[in-house]
Structures are given as C-alpha cells and as structure tokens.
Amino acid sequence: MSDLAQPMIEVFDVAKDYDHGTIRALDGVSLTVDRGEFVAVTGRSGCGKSTLLHLLAALDRPSRGRIVVDGRDLVQRGDLDEFRRREIGLVFQLHHLLAHLDATENLEVAMMGTHRRRAEKRVRALELLDAVDLGARATMRPPRLSGGERQRLAIARALVNEPGILLADEPTGALDTRSIDSVLALFRRIRDERGTTIVLVTHDPTVSAATDRIVEMRDGRIVDRGVSTA
C-alpha cells in the first residue's frame, strides 16, 4: 500500500557515467517530486535532463545513487518490466508508435501481459481514445494522424495501464503551437482528473511555464529545483 504522505519520486545523489566513466551525464542529482505534481525539467540540450528521465523510467541504471519511486528503490527491484508496464507511462518526443498497427491496436499492445481480458482491453483502449479526443481515429494508423494526434495517441498509450507516473521526454518538441497547446491541456487534465504525477522534460520555456514547478539543469546538475505553483 502506498504511503500518500511519501513523495512519489525521490532521487538521491544520482550520477550517470558513460564510456567507462569518461563522460559524466549526471553528477550528484537529488530531486523530490510529490504525488500529483506536474514538474518540468528544463535545460539546454545535453544538460542531462533526458538521461534523468530514462533513469526514472528504469530504462537505464544510475552509476551511483538511489532512485525511489512510490517507496521502492529501483536499483533493488528485479521486476523492472512490471514497473514500466504498470507504474509508469512513457511518452517520447517522436512518439514511437507502431506504424503498422492502428490507434486501438497500439494501445492494446501496451496492455499485453496485463490480466485484462481481450474485450476489456478493447473497451479500455476505446475509452482512452475518446478521452484524448481520438475516438474518431480509432482505426487509423499513426502515419495517417497529424503530429498532435500522434502525440495524444502516445499519451493515451502511456496511460493505458493506469500508471501513477507519466514521464514525457520532449513531448511537444515536434509539434506546432496549436498541437502543443492541446497536448499541454491534456497533461493538465490527466493530472487534475487522475492525480497522475507528471515529469516532463522540455527545453521550451512556454511548455515548462504550463507546469507546477520548473527544475532547471545544467551540465548534469540541478541548478534550480523551483517552487511549486500548484
């Protein structure tokens, strides 16, 4: 059972090295994100913000330090597939949808391995497509969707297993202004309606301005943890 008073994400003195320690992407990063908080991690290209997000998503392991998500240390966990499937939702800049599957199937693929029955998965997928205003696009494949629609579909995929955390890596990086607005509105709605904790990586100040708190990074370190405006 989750302790609601405990932060959703706790990062303790995390470092990440590449190329046998010759490149340090993160250096002594510590951060806390509360439940239901909508946080933007900003900084220039190469400052380590995407690396931090990948560590939070357990796509990679830190070289040093601890990351605790919902009270459990990721480094100690052996069920990272399960963690990625149930506890977090990931949104990529280039959405990374499966181009040969239609919108509904893209969501159903993300539900494989869960205990839902086939019919339940279909209902869940259609509900979510409606929720992200893609109900009319259910049978369309990603190449036929606009950039904003693809990103909304990617967000729906990230939410399909009802995760407590949504991690988004430059989700608006390839979108026009109108699509950016609709995606940001969707993030806010998800946070407000579902209480989902959202960590969004962006280098766009207009995007970060739409969040509760802005964490700024530079050269692998956090230089400003920001103050929540929620």
Binding site: D81, E82, V109, N161
Partner: peptide, 16 residues
C-alpha cells in the same frame, strides 16, 4: 531494433 526497444520500454518482458 527501435520497435523492440519501444515494446521493452512500455513494459514488455524479454520472454514476451
């Protein structure tokens, strides 16, 4: 490769 990586990233196990 990317497709497999995305499937792993969204929670597919190695076995699946």
């Amino acid at each position: 490769t990317r497709e497999f990586g995305v499937l792993r990233a969204i929670g597919w196990s190695r076995r699946r």
